[in-house]
Write a protein that binds this DNA or RNA. Structure first.
Lengths: 147, 147
DNA sequence: CGCAACTTATCAAGACCTTGATGATTGTCA
DNA sequence: TGACAATCATCAAGGTCTTGATAAGTTGCG
């Protein structure tokens, strides 16, 4: 069968990503949030009134997936949604006071993880890692485009 | 709020992982498989008779998640399950002929992606990337352990 | 022997993601 | 003005993942 497992760099990548997601999940859980919910609140804190479609693009998911996340956040009163005055088809979403409190509680821990990772590397190493990851993605895209 | 977005190495990691998953998803889809299903069939091809719990560990998911994946594979006749002769509580899982056919079809494309990534880097670069990712994971674990 | 600890398997509930399909609204252009 | 394309929101179906809880078989030790 295809490639030997220990040559598949994708496995190394996946393991680290899973480790990161597990840690973030545990971190934001104390604020009663999931990782996608945290990402939405983070985006809304910086850009009040974003549409669901815009949030979907910012969080790298489909609009359908965003609908579900926003529904959960709205049910729990962490965000509010209202029709855009001009574009009646657009629902403007805003973070509530309660949502901001949850976000800050979650961000304290989630940021600590990113900061720890950031400090693990020197500036040169960070650039190097980013460059290698970019080439990784480029290779994936190149192969996907051919298939 | 916590860390600036462009300093969060986790985002670079996530983007590449998403790119890889999307490409793999599309690759194995032509064989009618999902990525987790492909991972299970791949493991079973090399280790006939694995238990669901062992598959869960091999695929880095919970046993509960594996139950669902195996149910779908069994419903479609791609794997067969039978009680272990001694350990009556264990269900031995084996890949069927049909399952092997789907696996080979999927693996041709999935392996091509991994091979393309492999060939993108020199041996030194691969070791470097692996080492950086390992340090990334170590930093995440260190912070998670403290929280 | 008998009970505790571990492993295995699974159900249930909740959340998320995807593709596909459906409305509603807005802007453009013939 | 009317047709059309683009955008936004959402329902539905299928699959995956999580935690929590339950049940059953195996193992080991007092």
């Amino acid at each position: 069968m295809g490639m030997p497992l220990d040559e598949r760099l994708g496995l190394d990548l996946k393991r680290v990503e899973q480790e990161l997601m597990a840690a973030k999940h545990a971190a934001v859980k104390v604020a009663g949030l999931t990782v996608p919910q945290y990402a939405v609140l983070y985006a809304l804190a910086g850009n009040p009134g974003m549409s669901g479609a815009a949030l979907a693009r910012a969080c790298l998911v489909t609009p359908q997936a965003m609908t579900g996340v926003l529904k959960n956040l709205e049910d729990r009163g962490l965000v509010e949604r209202a029709r855009h005055p001009w574009h009646r088809n657009v629902l403007e979403t805003r973070i509530t006071e309660e949502g901001r409190a949850a976000l800050e509680k979650a961000d304290a821990r989630a940021s600590a993880i990113e900061r720890r990772v950031f400090e693990e590397f020197s500036a040169e190493e960070r650039d190097l890692l980013r460059a290698l990851l970019a080439r990784f993605a480029k290779a994936v895209q190149a192969e996907a485009a051919e298939q």
